[in-house]
């Protein structure tokens, strides 16, 4: 029992050490800059509509639905998530960790947590940018929801989606040689295909869960008007959240299993 507790304590210490060391490193990389630039993109079309005669909240809702959720969120998560193990493999620095007496799972967990914090921060900045740009262009009206009421639910949903995507991409990164390439294929081909299929097949995609969460919000009827596809079956809020958390958990366990077993020094 004492050995098990000691083992757990060591693993937690390693996780925290890896987390703190790599979070600080990740913040200062060019990757973070690219992620921030990607996060700024959705704000640009909203700002571009300033002074034009457009329906209330239409810019921010269209941009959130079509650009932020479907393109930028997976992209930001991909850039952050694929780097978890793949960056160490590509830079060949993984050797420094795996020849040390550390738990591989603790290392993976530490790096994944760092990537999740990084992505959550960038996604928050993206949603914050949406809010600020919408406030600058739309202003307040007497009736109908305020910009805050429209945007506020987007933040937790985006962060949750970001965490799910990061965990999936981290597991992919632990498994394949080119996680960015495979991740691009997954995020923009498989997800796009599955999310737009009629019936319950769409439930296989993260994107459909995120859309369902938005639809389940008090402002859901406004969001629903954006989705023109007939026969879409939305998932209830609680079920969507638990599905996304399960996705995170399964991807994490899968990633741990791969990292624990895989041989990373495979060049002759």
């Amino acid at each position: 029992m004492a050995t098990v507790l000691l083992h757990i304590r060591e693993s937690i210490q390693t996780t925290l050490l890896v987390f703190t060391t790599h979070l600080w490193r990740m913040v200062r990389t060019r990757r973070t800059l690219v992620m921030l630039m990607a996060a700024a993109v959705p704000s640009l079309p909203i700002l571009a509509t300033a002074g034009r005669s457009v329906p209330l909240h239409a810019p921010v809702m269209n941009v959130t639905w079509f650009l932020a959720m479907q393109v930028m969120l997976p992209l930001i998560a991909l850039i952050g998530g694929a780097a978890v193990i793949a960056e160490e493999i590509m830079d060949r620095t993984i050797t420094w960790v795996f020849v040390r007496p550390v738990s591989r799972i603790a290392f993976f967990t530490g790096r994944l947590l760092a990537a999740q914090v990084q992505v959550a921060a960038v996604v928050t900045a993206m949603v914050g940018g949406l809010f600020v740009s919408a406030e600058m262009t739309t202003g307040k009206v007497a009736d109908g929801p305020t910009t805050y009421e429209v945007i506020a639910p987007v933040l937790p949903i985006s962060v949750l989606g970001g965490l799910a995507y990061v965990t999936i991409f981290a597991a992919i990164g632990a498994w394949v040689k080119r996680p960015l390439a495979v991740g691009v294929g997954y995020a923009f081909t498989m997800e796009a295909l599955l999310a737009n299929l009629p019936g319950t097949t769409a439930e296989l995609s993260v994107l459909h869960h995120l859309r369902s969460l938005l639809i389940a919000e008090p402002t859901g009827d406004l969001w629903e008007k954006l989705e023109v596809a007939a026969g879409t079956l939305w998932i209830p809020y609680g079920e969507a959240v638990s599905s996304l958390l399960w996705t995170c958990g399964i991807a994490f366990v899968l990633g741990c299993w791969i990292v624990r077993r895989k041989q990373y020094g495979l060049s002759v």
């Binding site: 200062r28 060949r92 620095t93 050797t95 795996f98 020849v99 007496p101 591989r104």
Partner: peptide
């Protein structure tokens, strides 16, 4: 992946790969 053994080993790899930052 034997942690007990790895605690007793030191390894200097041939790859010129360090955390550059």
């Amino acid at each position: 992946a034997n942690r007990r053994l790895l605690a007793r080993i030191g390894y200097c790899p041939t790859d010129d790969a360090l955390y550059e930052d």
